[in-house]
Design a binder for these strands. Structure first.
Lengths: 146, 146
DNA sequence: GTAATACCTAAACCTAACTTTAGGTCAAGG
DNA sequence: CCTTGACCTAAAGTTAGGTTTAGGTATTAC
């Protein structure tokens, strides 16, 4: 069992954020001894899940819903699984979008590298997609797909 | 040249967002004819860059800085390149984090699949990392790295 | 001529996710 | 004793990134 300060250190989060999560009922089984929060394994695992679901673009109120399901017992396994499945799909498409943005960034790095060498963008602006150098062509194309 | 409504449709953005971006000086070279905004190629490319940089986690005020550099001419090529390099690095690490979160999601999908079959989490909770099934082991390990 | 549209502005409003503030309890150390 | 530090609460404040509102102009459709 850990105090709020220890958990804050372990997860590199401000104490105020942990209190905020608690107030948002993200730790439904959190215990207290004379008013003081005691974080156990359940809460540490909850925090790992919270970090994951936040990264997956979920809002606090939906994370709370999940925590409530956990407290409800085995009858909610299917709901919980469906939620993770839905998040997985969402996340895969987010990662795909980020990879497209990353290709754009790579293309821009190449572009400015060239611009610095040329001293201007004249040659680059005259370049049509078809005659981009092989090394950058597919990156450019990915970057401009949807 | 396009009107704000046409651009809104092309980029699937509300008109109000385009006006907001303009107010934030994200289109420093935007022209107007009798008060009405006229979006040209420069602005369309700016919008593509804005979408990319937002996805890369940049704030509006930093995107503005980049747009100002573009308006300043060739002397800012190095700054612009450095900015894209920095974003590229940042984005690569973001994608790595998202992939770790995705592994956690995959693990949880597997976990609840098992829990549904078992009717409870007893067997799962007794499982120690070392004797997880091969199919899920590396996913579990990735999900718990960092 | 009047009604529906598409455009314009300034300014108020909104939301999520925290963070800060103000005030208080309690235990240990000097 | 009294001060330092870790904990507590409720409530107000903050920030980014828009969105909405209220009021106005100009063009086209009937």
């Amino acid at each position: 069992m850990y105090t709020i300060g220890q958990v804050a250190e372990m997860f590199d989060l401000p104490v105020s954020t942990l209190r905020y999560y608690d107030k948002q009922r993200l730790f439904p089984e959190l215990e207290r001894t004379s008013g003081i929060r005691r974080f156990g394994d359940t809460e540490l695992e909850a925090l790992r899940v919270i970090e994951c679901l936040k990264k997956a673009g979920m809002e606090i109120k939906d994370i709370r819903l999940f925590m409530e399901w956990c407290a409800e017992g085995p009858s909610t396994y299917p709901k919980r699984k469906a939620m993770f499945e839905e998040r997985k799909t969402h996340m895969e498409s987010e990662i795909a979008k980020m990879n497209r943005a990353l290709d754009m960034l790579k293309f821009k790095c190449w572009y400015y590298e060239q611009a610095i060498q040329d001293g201007n963008e004249d040659r680059l602006k005259a370049l049509i997609p078809d005659n981009l150098p092989e090394e950058i062509k597919s990156t450019y194309e990915n970057a401009h797909t949807q």
